[in-house]
Each structure stands twice: as structure tokens, then as C-alpha cells.
């Protein structure tokens, strides 16, 4: 990370009692990886473009990491969005977090929900996400879509890396692990895979931050972002034009809502 951030990290560790910084680095193969700073000796300078950066908030779901209590985390826009959503869902209660967002040769520090909200509304973009793959899928006929997904999903091995890497998948016991009744068939057959993806998409609907971490970690290249973005768009269209007021769309309702397909 740049000079200024590194100086600030050293300051946080010395003066603020921060004992872990989850930073980002590139390994020798060019992969962006988490870089854990436990002491000032671990600080390295590395250059990662802001849009190449990953969202490592999933680490905060690990008990071992949580126990550090006071944690700094280097992130970009999606990290802030995740922070905001997790705060709303009451997941960061016992943690003191310092978000460090690199800018050209400086950085922004965010520690509270309020700051995060200001940062996000400053960058407000259209609530409808444009995605080429999503457009393509939407253009297909029903049969084509089904065949497209069956062909794509065939490769999924149900390794659940998409779940592990998702900051919003924080349940300590997942529905996939429940076996009385067995909600999701265990074998990675098309049936089990299909149901897993329906369930994953539903459980993240209205909460997903579109960080695309799930897509980045999937060894089978499953375009999960099509589902994530599709649902995001549907929720923005159907329930509100203002995305930030939704927070968790499936937990709210408007009494005058009408749904055309319910007869």
C-alpha cells in the first residue's frame, strides 16, 4: 500500500491498540491475496489498483480473526458497502474497525456507519446495475436459459468457496449443513447444485454488495454475479427507487404494494 497508508497503519498499531490489519498484496503469480499485518515489521508497500482490490470482510466471520477485536482493513468501495450492510445487520457489535481506502497518493479512513453512509452517497451511482452477461441471459428464451445454466452449473463441485468468501454469508450454521430435513441434496449433481444456487441467491437477495468476491474465488467460473445483479435490479425496480433506504428489502414491506402475478 502507499506511503501514507503505511504510516497510518504504523500509527494505528502503536497508538490506537489495533493489533491486526488485513491488507492486500500480490503474490508471485500475480494473485491478489490477503496480507495480515500483526506487527509493524509486516508492513510492506505494494501497488494494487483500486478496482483490482478484493473484499476481505469475510475474514471477520472467523472466530480467530474476531478475537483481535480492534482491526484495520484495507478495502475499496465494496468494502465500505459491506461494512455498512454488516453494521445494519448487527454483525460488527464487538469489533472496532478502521477501514482504510487508498486514493491516488493518500487514503480515506472510515470508522463509523455515518462516515460510511456519507462516503457511499458521495459516490452514488445508478441503482440499476448493467452487466453484459445478465443482459445476454435475459434476452434468452426460457429453454435457452435453462440449458445455459445447466451447462454452466455442471462444473460446480459444491466446494462452497463462494459461501466461504462472501462477507454476507456469516451464518454459523448454513442451511446446506442441515440434514433433518436435508434441504439441499449433498451430492454435486445438477439437482443439488441448482438448489444450492437458488438458495444462495435468495439468502443474499437485497443484502449482496456486488463485490463479486464469490465470482473471483469460484474455481469453476460460475457467473454468480448474474444472479446477484439480476436480483439487485429486481429489488430496486419493484420495491424502491432508492437503494440505500432498502438495507434489507425482504424484511420490509409497504402496505399498498401490488404484485401483478399474484391473482
Amino acid at each position: 500500500m502507499n506511503q501514507k497508508i503505511n504510516q497510518h497503519i504504523a500509527y494505528l498499531m502503536k497508538e490506537k491498540g489495533v493489533n491486526l490489519i488485513i491488507s492486500q498484496a500480490k503474490d508471485s503469480n500475480g494473485f491478489v491475496i490477503p496480507h495480515f499485518i500483526l506487527s509493524e515489521n509486516d508492513i510492506i508497500s505494494s501497488v494494487i489498483a483500486i478496482n483490482e482490490m478484493r473484499n476481505f470482510f469475510a475474514y471477520l466471520n472467523k472466530q480467530e480473526i474476531k478475537s483481535f477485536k480492534s482491526i484495520g482493513i484495507v478495502c475499496n468501495y465494496f468494502g465500505v458497502k459491506t461494512f455498512f450492510q454488516l453494521k445494519f445487520e448487527n454483525q460488527l457489535k464487538d469489533l472496532e474497525l478502521f477501514l482504510l481506502i487508498p486514493t491516488d497518493d493518500d487514503f480515506i479512513e472510515i470508522t463509523s456507519e455515518k462516515q460510511a453512509e456519507d462516503y457511499l452517497s458521495g459516490l452514488k451511482q445508478s441503482t440499476i446495475l448493467v452487466d453484459e452477461e445478465l443482459e445476454n441471459v435475459k434476452k434468452m428464451s426460457m429453454e435457452e436459459r435453462w440449458n445455459y445454466w445447466m451447462k454452466t452449473l455442471e462444473l460446480c463441485t459444491k466446494c462452497y468457496a463462494c459461501r466461504a468468501a462472501c462477507p454476507m454469508c456469516y451464518c454459523s450454521s448454513c442451511t446446506t449443513e442441515c440434514n433433518i430435513p436435508q434441504w439441499i441434496p449433498v451430492p454435486a449433481s445438477l439437482h443439488g447444485i441448482f438448489e444450492w444456487h437458488v438458495m444462495r441467491a435468495m439468502h443474499l437477495a437485497g443484502r449482496c454488495t456486488e463485490c463479486d468476491e464469490c465470482v473471483k474465488v469460484c474455481p469453476a467460473n460460475i457467473p454468480l454475479n448474474i444472479l446477484n445483479k439480476g436480483l439487485h435490479n429486481k429489488i430496486s425496480e419493484a420495491f424502491s427507487s432508492d437503494d440505500s433506504s432498502i438495507k434489507y428489502a425482504l424484511n420490509f414491506f409497504q402496505p399498498d404494494e401490488k404484485v401483478d402475478f399474484i391473482k
Binding site: 435453462w146 441448482f194 435468495m202 439480476g230 436480483l231 429486481k234 420495491f239 425482504l250 402475478f261
Partner: peptide
């Protein structure tokens, strides 16, 4: 609300 979202998942798939 749940059905609206659920129908969309199924439609996309």
C-alpha cells in the same frame, strides 16, 4: 416480497 424475488431467481435460471 419474497415471491417477487424468488420468481426472479427462477426466471433468470
Amino acid at each position: 416480497r419474497r415471491w417477487v424475488v424468488f420468481k426472479e431467481v427462477l426466471d433468470i435460471m
